[in-house]
């Protein structure tokens, strides 16, 4: 069982995933989009590294997009 936290919420599954599969296939974020970025355990994970980065038990993943701000 792999348990992780995505955007503050717990997720769990049994098979192995990489970050690309998690973000695009499981969570349905748009592929090839420049409108969001991914942080793995607080650090930027560039898009080109998503396919080669395995999601490990206990990982904390954040998906961030633009919002209005002052």
């Amino acid at each position: 069982m792999i348990e992780i936290i995505v955007n503050g919420k717990s997720m769990a599954w049994t098979s192995e995933k990489n970050v690309y599969t998690l973000i695009i296939d499981t969570l349905n974020y748009p592929a090839e989009s420049s409108r969001f970025v991914v942080a793995l355990n607080g650090e930027l994970l560039p898009a080109e590294q998503w396919p080669s980065t395995r999601v490990n038990n206990g990982d904390i993943i954040d998906v961030l997009g633009a919002i209005t701000g002052g």
């Binding site: 955007n7 633009a66 002052g70």
Partner: peptide, 12 residues
Amino acid sequence: TMSLRRQTAGDL
């Protein structure tokens, strides 16, 4: 100015 926050696929 803009900022960035956690967003779901739906938010985006």
